[in-house]
Design a protein around this nucleic acid. Structure first.
Lengths: 110, 110
DNA sequence: TTACTTCATCGTAATATTGCGATTAATATG
DNA sequence: CATATTAATCGCAATATTACGATGAAGTAA
């Protein structure tokens, strides 16, 4: 107990949950927003931008990278990060059935 | 330490993270999918549909309810759950800037 | 080489999550 | 009233996450 029972869910459900989970922390939202704004790649500017310690930012970057949402490339002493647009499209197509609801003519039953 | 430093982030970032976090578990994805499919409200069918114990499902429902994504209404001995479409629209508008990227002419910098 | 910069990783403490058995509260039903 | 039924809550154990100081690895600059 304590661990998620991934084996009772579909591959898609686990994938969707994993990506949503990766975005489930304000620091990681901030990182993604920064990568969106800058368009170009960045490294440790995030430590200055967000008020968290360097190891913590590094950990959040790793989480986003593990989920496949960002890519990292070592360039000299610094590392260049950017959004992984291919994976981003996968996420969009997986989540759009949930998000794009016809909410206009729906009445809550409760 | 171990707790998220919510105070250093914007209200929007915390809100987005909270909603993403609520969807960050396959069981809760499955619950939302079931609510989408059924359209009408449900209660403990989820326990049968998903292979988890009743207290566990109840806990996940509470998490979704706390995030505001679903509503619950007591009807006799059972409880009726459904998606909260208003909150759903809020989530859609918050997340769409992140999801609706022009990925076509973007080249990864890494 | 030495010193500096940049980032990842290790180790640790605090906290949160996941899952479930046992129990409880509330409402039906006999 | 007694007894199911339904779902929430409590309490616990296992695991995961968050945050950071200390350290390490790898490149850069003097």
């Amino acid at each position: 107990m304590g661990a998620t029972k991934t084996e009772i869910f579909t591959e898609q459900q686990n994938q969707m949950a994993q990506m949503a989970k990766a975005l489930g922390h304000p620091a990681r939202i901030a990182i993604v927003q920064y990568l969106l704004k800058q368009d170009t790649c960045i490294c440790g500017d995030l430590v200055l931008e967000i008020g968290l310690a360097q190891p913590t930012i590094s950990q959040h970057l790793k989480a986003l990278k593990t989920a496949g949402l960002i890519k990292g490339n070592i360039e000299g002493t610094s590392t260049c990060y950017c959004l992984d647009y291919e994976k981003w499209d996968v996420m969009k197509s997986l989540l759009s059935p949930l998000l794009n609801l016809e909410t206009d003519n729906k009445t809550n039953c409760c």
